[in-house]
Amino acid sequence: MTNSSLEKTIDKILDQTEHDILSNLDGAVSDSHQILDNSVTKLEDEYDKIVADGRKEADKLEKQIIGGSDIEARNKQLLALEDAVSRVFTKALDQISNSDRNGDYANLIKSLLDESTKVLGTSEVIVFTNSKDRDVVQSALSNFAGSELSSETIDCIGGVKIQSKDGAMKFDNTIDAKIDRLKPLIRKEIASKFGVKE
């Protein structure tokens, strides 16, 4: 084989190789474009998903933080209100306790006794009261035949507690018990004075 034919063969191989390489490169470029194009869609989907998940998580955190602080603020307000209501109650009870046992008070005792004997269905009762009210109660008892005032005194702001003579039935009509029963309604009234709406 002459030198020139060897060179020709080498050139041919080189051309062929160059062509193969170039065509491979073209293929690779077009494949990579294709992959890139597909990745963009995938990437966009992933991006959207991450953003959506992030938003969800942020919403969740926002709800947690706002919900928690709302509850905390509300609870503090409730405690402050309750404290104020208690102070109003204490002051009111003090005032009632130290009030004069005048004519109106005698009428109140009379109506409490009347209500109590009606509830028990008999005036054959023993009446209990505190040391302060003994005189008022004693004088009111003349209207209730069969009733008697106990020598024992009870600890209360005012009013009476009555008991059937056999001890089977009792009725608490002290001012303390009345206030206790009315407390939920009074609390609402006091709270509204502090500007708390339902």
């Binding site: 509830v119 089977a168 009792k170 009725f171 029963r181 009315l182 939920p184």
Partner: peptide
């Protein structure tokens, strides 16, 4: 809500 008390039986 009632404000009347109740009878206690023993």
């Amino acid at each position: 809500m009632t404000t009347e008390g109740g009878v206690q039986y023993s």
